[in-house]
Simulated assay, not measured.
Amino acid sequence: MRYAQGGGLTDAGRGARERIRLGAVERFGRGEKNRGIAAALRVSERSVERWRRAWRERGEAGVLTKGSPGRPRLGPKQISMLARELACGPLTHGWAGQRWTPARVKTLIGRLFHVSYTVEGTWRLLKRHGWSWQQPARRAIERDEEAVELWKEEVWPRVRAPTGPRPVRCSGSTRQPWRRPRP
Rank of each mutant, 00 (worst) to 15 (best):
T92E: 13
S44K: 00
K127G: 05
R35T: 08
D11I: 07
R2M: 03
Q134I: 12
P76N: 06
A96G: 10
L22Y: 06
L112R: 13
Q98A: 10
E120Q: 15
R50V: 14
A54I: 04
R14F: 01
E26D: 14
I141F: 08
A137P: 08
F28Y: 02
R53N: 11
A137Y: 08
F113M: 10
V155E: 15
R2H: 07
D11T: 11
K66M: 09
R158H: 14
I37V: 13
E45Y: 01
G121E: 06
G75D: 15
E32W: 08
P162L: 14
G6S: 08
R17T: 00
G36F: 05
C170L: 14
A38D: 03
R99N: 04
A12M: 00
T163D: 14
E60R: 13
G15T: 06
L125H: 05
L112P: 06
G23H: 04
R27H: 04
R73A: 08
W156G: 05
T65M: 03
G89A: 02
W151I: 10
P102M: 12
S68D: 11
T107D: 07
G31L: 03
I109H: 00
L41E: 13
E153P: 06
K77W: 02
W133H: 08
R180Q: 14
V25Y: 05
R14A: 06
A83C: 03
Y117Q: 12
R128H: 14
H129T: 03
W156M: 11
P167N: 13
R160C: 07
R42G: 07
L41N: 06
D144L: 12
G59E: 04
A4I: 05
A96C: 05
W55N: 05
V105E: 11
W131V: 08
A12I: 04
Q5G: 07
K127D: 04
R160G: 03
E60V: 13
R143F: 08
Q135I: 10
P157E: 12
E145P: 13
A16I: 05
A103V: 10
V25T: 02
S47Q: 08
V63S: 04
T10W: 06
A38E: 02
I109C: 05
S44E: 02
A147G: 07
T174S: 12
R21T: 01
E60Y: 02
A39V: 03
R158S: 12
G172P: 11
R179G: 00
G62A: 07
V159S: 07
G31F: 01
T92A: 15
R53E: 15
L9V: 00
R14Q: 04
K33H: 09
